[in-house]
Design a protein around this nucleic acid. Structure first.
Length: 296
DNA sequence: GCACAGGTAGATT
DNA sequence: AATCTACCTGTG
């Protein structure tokens, strides 16, 4: 076997414990778009300047990781813990969801018992979901690779990071069009121009209370309620953010008999019935719906 | 050829 | 305030 640029597999002592199906759904179910499956249940992912591999241990009671030999181990493990929000007790949160009274939630948790919400870099997450409108996961992933290759810094393994907003702004719209972003290219370029004109603004948005942060994100071209809530949920740990897309709309319509409700009414319903973990509950329903576990 | 895919913004009822 | 429609590209 050829020598690898990656370190040996190492125990990730603070790792979450996930079954294989929940792990795949968490990494490749539409929250993040830069994870790829390797052999033997392992995954390789990229965010900011990090390239990380993870896999279940032989005994499946923790995860192991590997990083490029040139990477700083301490920075990498800190980044992993942040990305996975390992400080949050997801098994306790799962138990707080209304599965006892809600058969949809119960079915979804049975299918993906250890599903988690990632805490991705806020600025990258905004880019990701600007790419996502009326696109399917494989296409979104392909777009990410093309944009990274054209505009992002090279990483230790020869692949590329996603570009910073500054790099996107400098590149203009053309490379985004080349990356098959279509009409989204104009929005992304406009966002980049706005963001570089206001240094520190986007970072400050991440720190705001959820409602204020959402209001700020909605000022960006191409960012509507759904994308804003995805960025808050998957990029800022706001589990109360509740993105309503075509899937969720269908689920709420069928399973909760809310067929003729409009988006605002559905938002209200979610806030009242699913509360502080509304977004987490939504991700369970979304995963179950996509897996065909719900009658829709 | 044509509808549809984890939307949004602007125009038109 | 609710309902069209254009906007790109890929897939079935």
């Amino acid at each position: 076997m050829a020598s690898s640029i990656f370190s040996d597999w190492t125990v990730w002592s603070d790792s979450p414990i996930l079954d294989a199906i929940s792990l795949k759904e968490t990494l490749d179910g539409g929250q993040a778009f830069r994870w790829n499956a390797l052999e033997a249940g392992a995954f390789e992912g990229r965010w900011n300047a990090h390239v990380v591999r993870i896999r279940p241990s032989v005994t499946c009671d923790h995860l192991e990781y590997a990083i490029p030999k040139t990477a700083c181990p301490k920075a990498s493990i800190d980044a992993l813990n942040t990305y996975w929000a390992t400080g949050i007790d997801y098994s306790a949160l799962t138990d707080q969801l209304p599965w006892r009274s809600d058969p949809v939630i119960r079915t979804a948790i049975e299918a993906f018992p250890t599903l988690r919400i990632l805490k991705q870099p806020f600025e990258e997450c905004l880019f990701s979901f600007l790419c996502s409108s009326t696109k399917q996961v494989p296409q979104i992933k392909a777009i990410h690779e093309m944009v990274a290759l054209r505009l992002g810094n090279e990483l230790p393994d020869g692949s590329h990071a996603l570009p910073t907003w500054s790099q996107i702004a400098s590149g203009g719209e053309a490379p985004l069009r080349d990356a098959k972003l279509g009409y989204r290219a104009r929005y992304i370029n406009q966002c980049a121009q706005v963001i570089v004109e206001r240094p520190g603004w986007l970072a400050s948005v991440e720190q705001m209370p959820t409602a204020d942060a959402r209001e700020e994100l909605l000022r960006l071209p191409g960012v509507g309620r759904k994308i804003a809530d995805c960025v808050l949920l998957f990029g800022a740990g706001r589990l109360d953010a509740f993105p309503i897309d075509t899937w969720v709309q269908k689920i709420l319509g069928q399973a909760y008999s809310l067929k003729d409700w409009n988006l605002n009414q559905l938002q209200q319903f979610a806030q009242i019935h699913f509360g502080q973990q509304a977004g987490y509950a939504q991700q369970f329903r979304f995963a179950a719906a996509r897996a065909g576990k719900l009658r829709l």
